[in-house]
Amino acid sequence: MCDACGCDLKPAHSHDSKVVEVHQSLLAANTAMAAKNRKHFDTMGAVVINMISSPGSGKTTLLEKTIETLGGDIRIGVIEGDIETDRDAERIRAKGVPVVQLTTGGACHLDAAQIHKGIHLLEKEKGGTEIDLLFIENVGNLVCPATFDLGEHHRMVLISVPEGPDKPAKYPKAFHSSQLFVITKIDILPYFDFPVEEATAEALQLNPELQVMALSATSGEGFEQWLDYLRKLCN
């Protein structure tokens, strides 16, 4: 029973209620922090790429190979995001470039506040203030990271051949919000039913402005196109 008037209506009615018009995005705090990060990256002179994919699609392997072939010409840095462990950061560190591991402790995505922390941790690493090209390897997850702007300049989405060609249609947000779509592990195309052209067409239907390429980090096939893309970004 309602204390104020003794009526039977509970609890969704009131005698002294007030409606406050808010009209603010739930992502506003993240977006504001992302804008700060972007300014910070611009001051550093670094071009920043946010990598989004399912677990195991080959993000870290692509980075290792990219550092091996491009590391002499372009100063690369990496921020690794994982739920637990610093294994990916160890793999990158072994290639001799500045790297920071962020662990989200359960969260399925990185957010702009974590990246802000990451930037300052990176600055303490050797070479961490002199970076031309900074990769952010997001938590392996094709859904949640797509919602959070980190302050990156470019966003890429990766699908590996074993995952199948239907991913663009199933995970549209990652494709809507990216500028680049990379199909990875094409060395194993003979063993999987993955029509590259169909997957490409489907991704383009979702986002006509998407740039698409296919490569293998192990065989090196398609790698020149990827390196050219990066060189152009850093010009």
């Binding site: 009131s14 005698h15 002294d16 209620s17 007030k18 409606v19 406050v20 018009e21 808010v22 009209h23 603010q24 995005s25 739930l26 992502l27 549209p172 947000k173 809507h176 919000s177 383009l204 239907q205 979702l206 986002n207 006509p208």
Partner: peptide, 20 residues
């Protein structure tokens, strides 16, 4: 034509809150 650009909000907005 088979190519389309999606249009529409990608945001989550808190419109209003009723409190007492």
């Amino acid at each position: 034509e088979t190519l389309f650009s999606p249009e529409g909000s990608d945001d989550l907005i808190l419109l209003r809150v009723e409190m007492e």
